[in-house]
């Protein structure tokens, strides 16, 4: 394991879990999806979570995303204990602190890109003018300023995912939580999306990405591998760098 430098050690924790366990009842059997996970993720880290199916990575993802509560253990998000919060309080945390990016994009098919991006701000209770302005900024940041009035079926897969990323970013969340974000995209488009993640990371965004693809995980600084509900390995790595668009066009 490569040692991280001192500066990283001193950046504040965004995610801190202690003995996180999650059991499901399946008929008469109890399935132990997570068996005591201790995980710390600091601000501006770019973490890939890997593992075979059934390893508990989706369960961990749901817990980190506050979509689920642990059976036991503690989860602190930005120092706030969120395990054991009420449903409504969790909804509020999801709204403010988490930006979800899904494999299947999950855009509202009949809403424009702008309306899709503005949706989290509606639940945040922001006024209409502010919603519009922030959604436009978010779309511009994913280079879709010229596609604001398009509906999902008028956009390519890569564009849809970028709309979804803009939606995840519009509330300025603590964590960008991506679940197989390139799973439904071809390799060229995947690379564009990964470059967008690289850039967001460079801009200071904390990213947690669940993936089962090694070359996608290779883009992250740190790879956490789960096996049978436990962390099997947690490695820092030099992220594999791809030339940025600017580098490619100049070279």
């Amino acid at each position: 394991m490569k040692q991280d430098n001192k500066a990283v050690r001193e950046t504040p924790l965004v995610i801190e879990t202690r003995g996180l366990e999650r059991n499901y009842r399946l008929g008469t059997e109890t399935v132990r999806a997570l068996r005591g996970v201790d995980l710390e993720i600091r601000r501006n880290e770019y973490v890939a979570v890997m593992g075979p199916s059934g390893s508990g990575k989706s369960t961990l993802m749901n817990l980190i995303g506050c979509l689920d509560s642990p059976t036991s253990g503690e989860y602190r998000l930005n120092g706030q204990l969120v395990s054991g919060l009420s449903d409504d309080a969790l909804a509020r945390v999801r709204n403010r602190e988490i930006g979800f990016v899904f494999q299947t994009f999950n855009l509202l098919p009949r809403s424009t890109a702008l309306d899709n991006v503005a949706l989290p701000l509606i639940y945040a209770g922001r006024p209409k003018a502010e919603r519009r302005e922030r959604a436009m900024d978010a779309l511009a940041s994913v280079e879709l300023a010229d596609r604001m009035t398009h509906r999902p079926n008028e956009l390519s897969g890569g564009q849809r995912q970028r709309v979804a990323i803009a939606r995840a970013l519009v509330t300025k969340p603590s964590i960008l939580l991506a679940d197989e974000p390139t799973g439904n995209l071809d390799s060229k488009t995947s690379e564009d999306i990964m470059m967008l993640f690289d850039r967001l990371h460079q801009d200071g965004q904390t990213i947690v990405m669940v993936t089962h693809e090694r070359d996608i995980a290779a883009r992250a600084e740190r790879v956490v591998t789960l096996l049978d509900g436990c962390i099997a390995s947690d490695n820092l790595q030099d992220p594999l760098r791809f030339p940025t668009l600017a580098e490619r066009s100049s070279g």
């Binding site: 409504d88 909804a91 999801r94 709204n95 999950n106 509202l108």
Partner: peptide, 10 residues
């Protein structure tokens, strides 16, 4: 999706 984006029950 709406719930994941922060929609409450109500």
């Amino acid at each position: 999706l709406r719930k994941s984006l922060g929609a409450r029950r109500k």
